[in-house]
Design a protein around this nucleic acid. Structure first.
Lengths: 195, 195
DNA sequence: GTCTATAGGATGATAGAC
DNA sequence: GTCTATCATCCTATAGAC
């Protein structure tokens, strides 16, 4: 039998997960165009050509990151929906979203970056479908009216924006920024924001 | 005296305006990183090196676009504030924002693209200051509470997102998308959306 | 004031070894 | 399964003519 190589190996699936996780973080930070496959490779600890080899193209990688981000968001919502809680569903889902928003994964930021690329021939349709899927969830599964869903989405987009703009950098110096953040993330302690 | 050149010439200021307007549209469509100085040049009808020559760097051009977009937004708000109207100020400012949102200029989309680049060393601080300036306006000049300002900003970010994602593409085929758009843009007729 | 030509530096993707 | 080497493309920015 052949001896294990000196260089660490993994099963395809595991390495894929690793790269996808790294890619989510990097894409979330720098956006689709702003991210290089080399950055992703370095973050995942593999070589740049290997990243391309695994996913075919940078675009295909991003699309897979998007699909997974959307799936993770919906899974989080459904898990919260299945739980029993004293607070109204709106609040509970909002809190769940806020938690995803401030975690380090870059999940929601990737979605946000996709949302402003509606003009892209391949990414645009996926982004729109994803957005509408969340809207559908809120109405069909969570029982929101369209008005409620719209408001929920609005606050979600604000949270995404505040995290994307790194507003937490101003928390120390600007009292107005502090009030705004407290208002947009009612039950998220300052210490939960990255960096 | 020297005869006028064959190639059309303009005063520096006029050409600057022209390029800045073109740049706003292109940056709004493709984002900061996704835009090439050549695209801007073509849109403005000048050569690529001339665009760089005028503004020094692509980044400097984008920053100037940002400053102008922010100034235009605040000017629109202040103009609406100065006007007398029967509807509540919240609604009037919202309508003004929606109008800016769907016009062809790309103004608000440029801001949105900047908002998700908070990690950028030069663009990040400008984006944060711009966002907070709008928040300040809403509180100090329009008389909103922080809660009201936050809600206003939330719906603004949703409008930006819906335009950026090109949700109007789904208006014909998807009734849910239609309801969502109608809910987010209450008094904007379908025909006002681009394309 | 504006252009053409081009240098110089990434970056996505391919080829092929191990 | 994973790497090294490398190509080809694109893009910002500079040089210099008109």
């Amino acid at each position: 039998m052949s001896s294990p190589a000196v260089i660490p190996r993994m099963k395809s699936e595991d390495r894929r997960e690793l790269v996808l996780t790294a890619a989510t973080a990097v894409f979330g930070q720098n956006g689709y165009v702003g991210t290089t496959t080399d950055q992703v490779a370095k973050a995942a600890g593999v070589s740049q050509p290997y990243v391309v080899r695994m996913f075919g193209t940078k675009q295909a990688l991003f699309l897979e990151v998007l699909e997974r981000a959307l799936a993770a968001l919906l899974a989080t919502f459904r898990s919260e929906l299945a739980r029993s809680g004293t607070e109204p569903l709106k609040v509970r889902l909002g809190t769940a979203y806020a938690a995803l928003s401030v975690d380090q994964t870059g999940l929601l930021l990737c979605l946000m970056h996709a949302f402003v690329l509606g003009g892209d021939r391949e990414i645009g349709p996926v982004a729109r479908r994803g957005f509408l899927e969340v809207n559908d969830f809120l109405i069909d599964e969570a029982g929101f009216t369209q008005d409620e869903a719209t408001q929920f989405l609005a606050y979600g987009m604000l949270m995404n924006t505040l995290v994307g703009i790194h507003m937490q950098n101003e928390l120390g110096s600007n009292p107005r920024a502090q009030e705004l953040m407290f208002c947009a993330f009612p039950d998220t302690p300052e210490t939960d924001f990255p960096k």
